[in-house]
């Protein structure tokens, strides 16, 4: 798969049986919808609480940032926000193929420490990204 930002080949990083597509050049990360589903299912919580839709179909956020194309379906992705404090602007495929975090966004996200008590699906995703990318510069 090609990186939606710098168009180089991405590698696959598997951590705790979940795969991420990672661009070794620009350090952006593609989180595929199927893998998101697997990650959230390993939490063994009710689907209603931990719905993949709450991550994938978030509200479109207005932004002047350049629109990127989904590496799966090649249609333009929408801008969406995840996390709190600060909210991080990421790209989400409008067809629901997955999420794209570019290098800066991953950096912002992994510094967030979601409280361990009430982790929602977004919190779980953030925590997982933090776990995987411990050795980022």
């Amino acid at each position: 798969m090609k990186c939606p930002t710098c168009h180089n080949m991405m590698i696959v990083v598997e951590h705790e049986h979940v795969e991420l597509d990672y661009c070794p050049d620009c350090e952006g990360v593609w989180f595929d919808a199927g893998e998101l589903e697997l990650l959230l299912e390993t939490m063994q919580l009710q689907q209603s609480i931990l719905s993949i839709d709450s991550v994938l179909t978030s509200q479109e956020t207005k932004s002047k940032e350049k629109k990127r194309k989904c590496p799966i379906c090649h249609s333009k992705m929408k801008k969406a926000t995840v996390g709190h404090d600060p909210e991080v602007l990421i790209d989400a495929c409008s067809r629901g193929d997955g999420l794209w975090f570019d290098a800066g966004e991953v950096g912002q996200i992994i510094t967030q420490v979601p409280s361990t008590q009430d982790v929602d699906s977004q919190g779980r995703v953030i925590r997982f990204l933090g776990e995987v990318f411990q050795a980022r510069d």
Binding site: M9, V13, E14
Partner: peptide, 22 residues
């Protein structure tokens, strides 16, 4: 460190850094 890296055959790189442990 337990992380697996799967590298495509046509990558133009000689070394890859594990993002988990460096």
């Amino acid at each position: 460190c337990g992380t697996k890296l799967k590298v495509p055959p046509n990558i133009k790189k000689f070394t890859i850094k594990c993002p988990h442990c460096g």
